[in-house]
Structure formats: C-alpha cells, structure tokens
Design a protein around this nucleic acid. Structure first.
Lengths: 266, 266
DNA sequence: CGGCTATTTGAGAGAAATCAAGGATAGTGG
DNA sequence: CCACTATCCTTGATTTCTCTCAAATAGCCG
C-alpha cells in the first residue's frame, strides 16, 4: 500500500558495493574479535539504495552513533530463527541467504539479499528465518528501538522501509509460483534471469551472472536437489543458451531464449 | 520490524463473521447492481480484527464516509494482477483467494484471506495478484488516498497495517517451505492444521474444519494436482487421521497425529 | 429426476529423487 | 610451487512418486 516509490534504483552502484569488501572500516581493538565497528555512514557504499538514504545530513551523525557495521564470513549466521530480534540489518556488501529448516534438516532458502536490502523482519519480537552469509558480507546493524524512533521522526524512512517490505512480499509471491508450478528448466532459467537483472554485467551479446552461492543453496532455493540443478544447467549449456566458465559464474548467451524458457514457452 | 502487536486475537469473533453474510447492509437502488453500499462500520462484524480497530470513535464516522462495502459472489474477482490499485480492501466475511497465473494457465494460489485480513498490496501502483471470492464474501473498500491520510493521522493504524503485512510475509515464507520441501501428505496435513487453528471448531475429541474452496483451489495452493489432493485425503481417511463428512468439511480425528504428519514425522 | 460439475479412482508414463561413483576445484601446508 | 585433502560439482543407473490420461461416481441445482 502507500506511495509507490520507484524502486528501480537498485541496479546502480552495484560495482561500488563489490569494492566495499576491500576497504572495510578500520576496526578498533575492543571489538576486533567480533568484527564489529562504528558505522561509516558518511562513506557507505550502499547508502543510496538503503533505507538510510531517507536520512538527511543533520540526522546522519546521530544515526551513525547508534549503528554498527559487522563483517560476516561465509557460512556464519547473522541471526537465527526464533532468536530474539534486537536488530534490523541493512546489507552493505556481499550476500545473505535467508532460510528456514524443517525438523529433519530439509531446508528452504527463501531469499538472497544483497547491498541495500533489509533483513531482520520479525513478528512478536523473534526473527522468522536464519540469515547466513553466502560470501564475505558486511551488514549494518540497527537496534530496533533506535529504528522505531527514526521511523517516527522521518516519514521518508518509514516509506522506504514499507517499500522494502512490499518488495519482499512480491519476491516471495514469485518464489511461490516458481516452487509450486514451474519445472526445473523454468526454475533455473527464472533464477538466472532474475540474477542477471539484479546484478548481471552485460557485454555486446552476452550477460555475465556471478553466483556467489553454491549449487546446494540454489537447490534449496528452487526446491530441487543438487543433482537436478547440475543436470539442468548442463542441459541449458548443451542447448547453447548459456556457458559455464566457472562454478561461480554463468554466461547467458541468448537472453531472450532464456527468458522464454523461464516463462515455460518451449 | 516495529512493535510486536499481539496478533492472536484472530481466533475470536469468527462465528459472528459467519452471520454477517445473512445480515448484509441494506443496498440503495443507485448502487444496487454493483452490490456496493455505504460501509456500516458501526456494526461491522470484523471490526475487532481489522485495521479499523485502530480508529477511535470520533474519527470513525469520517472514515465510514470514505469507505464502501462490497458483496462479491463466488468466482467474481475483487481485483486483478496488473490492474491499477486504487483501493485497499479489508475482508469483512467470507473468503478471498489470491492467485497468480503463468501465461499457459498454470496457477499458484498464494493465500486464502478471511475476515479481518487486508488485501490489495501494491507496488508501483499496481496489484500483484488476482483476488477472487471463494464463496459469498463481503469486502470493505478503502481508497488508497484516504488510507494514506488516516495512516499519517493515526499511528496505531499504521502499526496495525504493518503488523498485517509482516504476518503476510511470514505466511508466504511458510508457504515457500511447504511448496519447496514438503511431501503431499505433509502439505495436506499442514493445510488442515493451519485451517483448524484459524477457524476450526473443536468438540470433545475432534475438530471440524470447513473448506469453503474446492479441491482445485487446494491443489493450486499446495502445488499439487487435484488428483493428488484427492488421493492424499483418501489416504489420511483410510489411516484414520480424519473423516470427510462432505466435500466441504473435514473432521480431524487425531490432531496430534496430523500435526506430526505435517512436520514430516512418520 | 436429469444434467452439470466436482470429486474419486484406476492404469500407465514420465520426471525428479535417490543411490553411487567419478572428476574438478579450492584451500592447506610442506 | 606443488602435492594433498576436503569439498563441491557432475554424471550414471535405478527407483519411486507424482502427473497425466481416462473413466466412473457422487454431489448439487434447477
């Protein structure tokens, strides 16, 4: 509901975000072991896409004082399902996977979140998923209490956050269609197209998509087994739709074809 | 994010809501054909669970003036995907299914919404799903413009709405786990348990669950075919977990067993 | 009662999961 | 810099489910 902020700013500033990993904020000895530092909001590479973009310069200093930046290593968790939700996080760089587990270990990844996206949605005070880093990732840690204060004070931030939540709703709806009604080929094609749109780098006649996550994560995201993911990628490769230069990148050779495959047009 | 309103008020007042169908607001000739009438907020059966509960008595009259009530017949749509989103709706009674279609007609139902729930989430001004009545349903039609005004004026309403949206997020996450990782038996069991919790009527040693929707809707919600839904229900019947007095109701004979089946414990 | 639609049931095919190796890749330490 | 190991990915063979196709039955409304 509410105003319809144009959200298509998200494809910008992605390459800057990549670099952010290298120029991490200086750590101080006290917090070194936890890789937590004072937030360098002033120079944040994700600023323009994050909800913080709604903060005006005067309030920024105050905001920065309440916020911490945290480096998360691959596989490490930011928070877990059912844990008390004291923070909301904004992804600065890298990539986070949100996942839910069944008792017997089956897993469903519900989203991959990159720079500018917000994680930590809660209900009744508890997180609703596990959040883990897929690769080296920097997140910005905002205390819920502080956030609430800012949201009240800054309607633009409230709007921006609402917009993020509605985006998330839409993505989950798309995921539901994919999981419930698409074939493996359609699933993989959809996944690659979505990633290409989000962060692909397009050259003359091909698009390079980088996969920070492994086949396992892809399988648990698409509701498939790792073998089916592998076989399906191989199939698309043999068809000539794409190439696989390495385990962590895909070259889309025929975007239109892949898009058609994603929608089920044979 | 934000405050954690306790949302477990939703199991109350359901029986009242059922009656609402019978005592529909009086229609006036002018709007008769469209089944749209002035909203009878003062006597609304869904008031306590709806976001309108955040409105104080003074503002209620004003609110009622902006809002219309609409009767929707089974199969009729409230809105369609990609349609311009001029209204947000609050379900007063009956049941609405939200669904998304693929080009070739495959369908994924993403939610069933009952009294007190809000539908009409939009992004960039357009609805994200089709919304259709499953049975005779009354919805309350709130112009987005008016709603925005109220949200600004009444923080409690903003909070209530945010809470609804977060609930929806959680439900979609659960749906994703179900679609991606559960077996047909687990899917049906989960579906029935959820419905029992939401609106089941419990007697001594059994719970009656009413199914307003047909097998087709259930299939499209759970990512199955209608045949598999039918076979799975038959299987559970033969196991003795439940009985099927009619096509539109299920008697859960062993709740704990069904709960275990829902979680995959054999 | 008759016709329509919804649901159940059956038989068979097809597709993805499972089980089982084999190969590639990356990270470690010599 | 290279060998070594652990992990990740691919490929193959087989099994098991679920879908598909087809038909019968049951429920509902006029």
């Amino acid at each position: 509901m509410l105003g319809s902020l144009d959200t298509r700013i998200s494809s910008l500033a992605k390459s800057e975000a990549e670099d952010a990993r290298l120029e991490l904020p200086v750590t101080n000895p006290e917090t070194e072991r936890k890789n937590i530092t004072r937030a360098p909001c002033a120079t944040c590479s994700a600023h323009n896409e994050a909800i913080c973009s709604a903060i005006n310069d005067c309030d920024m200093d105050d905001f920065a004082r309440n916020v911490r930046t945290r480096l998360v290593k691959p596989g490490q968790s930011v928070y877990r399902e059912f844990e008390e939700a004291k923070f909301v996080f904004s992804v600065v760089s890298g990539e986070i996977r949100l996942a839910n587990l069944l008792d017997d270990g089956r897993r469903q990844v519900t989203a991959f979140k990159t720079a500018g996206e917000v994680i930590g949605a809660q209900q009744n005070g508890y997180y609703q998923s596990d959040a883990e880093a897929v690769c080296d990732t920097v997140v910005c840690q905002i205390p819920v209490k502080a956030l609430e204060t800012y949201l009240k004070k800054m309607p633009a931030m409230q709007t921006a956050l609402t917009e993020k939540v509605l985006e998330e709703l839409q993505e989950l709806r798309h995921l539901a269609i994919l999981l419930g009604r698409k074939t493996p080929v359609e699933k993989i094609a959809t996944f690659l197209i979505d990633r290409a749109e989000k962060s692909g780098s397009e050259t003359e006649n091909e698009i390079k998509v980088s996969l920070t996550m492994g086949r396992n994560d892809i399988a648990d995201f698409l509701g498939l087994t790792i073998e089916t993911v592998s076989r399906t990628i191989t199939k698309l490769k043999k068809m000539g739709v794409l190439e696989v230069p390495s385990n962590h990148s895909i070259l889309i050779k025929d975007r239109v074809w892949l898009e058609n495959l994603a929608e089920g047009e044979k």
